[in-house]
Design a protein around this nucleic acid. Structure first.
Lengths: 342, 342
DNA sequence: TGTTAGCACTCCCTTGAAATGAGTGCTAAC
DNA sequence: GTTAGCACTCATTTCAAGGGAGTGCTAACA
């Protein structure tokens, strides 16, 4: 069977109506809703076809129809094909100047949640940072020294180390030179055990300091550590009866709170390079089990210097895809500016 | 009317039973439950008294009794007076060695939530840190310098600054000396506008760097910035039907997610110095509006060097106060060790 | 004077039957 | 190919009846 133009129109009408109301939609509603001027009986025939084709389904006999995952998918695909939509100016998205990335991202998540009435998440941008850029040891007081490590992408790690027997300024300077000349510009792979042993030997009695610094370097470089994820509006799921029952809500809330599982979403989104950077997961398509009754829309954003992060919107399957995709697209463009404004 | 021993016993029996079941408890239950050997009729008379005195109440005629806030309060006060309970060894609380405070606190919150089946929060320890301890500017590359600021309590702040026209190593050294000799040991109040102007003048063309550093100092010192709060187990509230209805759950979840309001709890708890460091808020006693149907138990913990934070457990009024208070007391003692172990 | 047995009464909650109504599938006519 | 009409289905609402848990009160008992 073919999905001709009339069937398409009817299908879209069904979905749009369902998006608004959340109730199964009947033939009579469609008969009036569209400009097709068809009687409800005709619509019923077409609906039977659409059901057979798998685009819509009936919760029970004598109920109206609701879109299936396949139906949503069709709708979203059609939506995405539409011409680049005009970038709506989000005046309400006035973000105050922020000097901290963290605060900015938290605010974006929050505003986005308020704006869309869905749950949102945003991951801090990640960059390739495999190389040590700079190491500095400084005295804080008699027994403590501060180790500052900067790696590519300007990720900074601080460690305060205690030194038992005092340490002369001279020794500190030597250690600084030792570490910088040997480690700068190296990646984690290039810092091998042999090299570490050599460094320790040169550091003599202060080899423990070298150990600690190298541990800190490893940590600063290891990517997953600061894959921070910020969420907001988790409680918005209570707005949608189909998600608000206790079992589902509890699971979802847990996912948002633990954040651990959200990583998968980020990984999955970033992995997919080809498209415009916006992806839609409907129902079972999502990598996260607890969201199998939801739809998830994700966008990859990119800050000037090649750092990429993920924004996600999680809501019911009858999400306002149109608006969400539009908003995300706008945000993709704006986020870079916001960051540059700092 | 007096709250004699028998009334006390009955009241405690009622409360304990209600804590377990969550259902109103009737006279017959108490008659069998206690070792008083009284008939249900006698219990009924006593219950009528207790109700008149405001310790218990009836949801409706011909229902059993449930504790009122006053009843809970009595129960908790009696509990707290009990002799220092033996510190239970929490074997299951084996926390892996963590080198980051943040990770430690997140883990504690999580374990605590799993352990108690309530929602938990923990605030990062705060210390008085009004004084600058140490400032260091270092070159990262040709156009960027890194400013590291350490204030009392070893709070560290990093800022990367861009410098337009290059900066010689000599100038950098001069700036370092300038900043350290003038700012070290000073509190925010002591760094006044006159001094800032003086510094800027001495810095000459690099006065903008001085400005940025001073801004960073102000931020590092300002306390509220890093009053981080970690939460866990918010979805545990779904275990208690009296909290699980949509309106309440949504509000609670929101409170946990936004964290903003939780600050009040921390402030309130830290303000109260006199007692053992454990406080119980029942119903309306809590400073947080959305928790007025909950009970909140908070504990102040102290890490060796005078840093204090707050742990909170949020659950239904029929919380197992006994266990919760015990667990928190244990944790108070253990947290310091855990931290020292680092 | 305190305790207890007995009983009528209250009120929530469950159960099941009946009514409602939205929506369908099918058939026959246009 | 489209439509009107009708019988049918089934979730949901409504209502009354019955059960049950628990109370308050009274009268008897120790």
């Amino acid at each position: 069977m073919q999905l001709d133009e009339r069937k398409t129109k009817i299908l879209q009408a069904i979905i749009r109506n369902y998006l608004e109301t959340g109730e199964p939609v009947g033939s009579r509603t469609i008969s009036k809703y569209t400009d097709l001027n068809l009687s409800s009986a005709t619509i019923r025939n077409e609906m039977a076809d659409l059901e057979e084709m798998g685009y819509i389904l009936q919760p029970h006999t004598s109920a109206g129809r609701i879109p299936s995952d396949k139906g949503y998918r069709f709708y979203v695909d059609a939506l995405m094909e539409e011409k680049e939509r005009e970038v709506v100016e989000m005046k309400e998205m006035l973000v105050e100047r922020q000097d901290k990335m963290e605060t900015l991202l938290k605010q974006v998540a929050k505003l986005l949640a308020q704006n869309t009435q869905y749950a949102t998440m945003i991951s801090a941008p990640q960059t390739q940072r495999n190389k040590v850029k700079f190491i500095q040891l400084s005295r804080v007081d008699d027994n403590q020294i501060l180790a500052v490590i900067v790696v590519e992408g300007n990720v900074i790690k601080n460690n305060i180390l205690s030194v038992e027997g005092g340490l002369t300024d001279e020794t500190l300077l030597k250690l600084n030179i030792l570490l910088n000349t040997n480690l700068n510009g190296l990646s984690l792979e290039e810092i091998n055990l042999g090299m570490i042993a050599g460094l320790k030997q040169q550091a003599g009695i202060h080899s423990d300091i070298v150990s600690e610094v190298i541990d800190a370097v490893a940590e600063a470089i290891r990517a997953d550590e600061d894959l921070e994820i910020y969420t907001s509006g988790a409680n918005n799921i209570f707005r949608y009866p189909e998600l608000a029952d206790q079992a589902k809500a509890s699971e979802l809330i847990n996912t948002f709170e633990e954040k651990q599982q959200l990583h998968e979403l980020v990984v999955d989104t970033l992995a997919d390079e080809k498209n415009t950077g916006i992806q839609v997961y409907i129902g079972d398509e999502t990598p996260i089990q607890s969201m199998k009754d939801c739809s998830v829309v994700t966008a990859t954003y990119e800050l000037g210097d090649g750092m990429r992060g993920t924004i996600g919107i999680i809501g019911p399957k009858r999400m306002d895809y149109d608006k969400v995709v539009g908003t995300l697209r706008t945000l993709q463009n704006r986020l870079d500016e916001l960051y540059k404004d700092k």
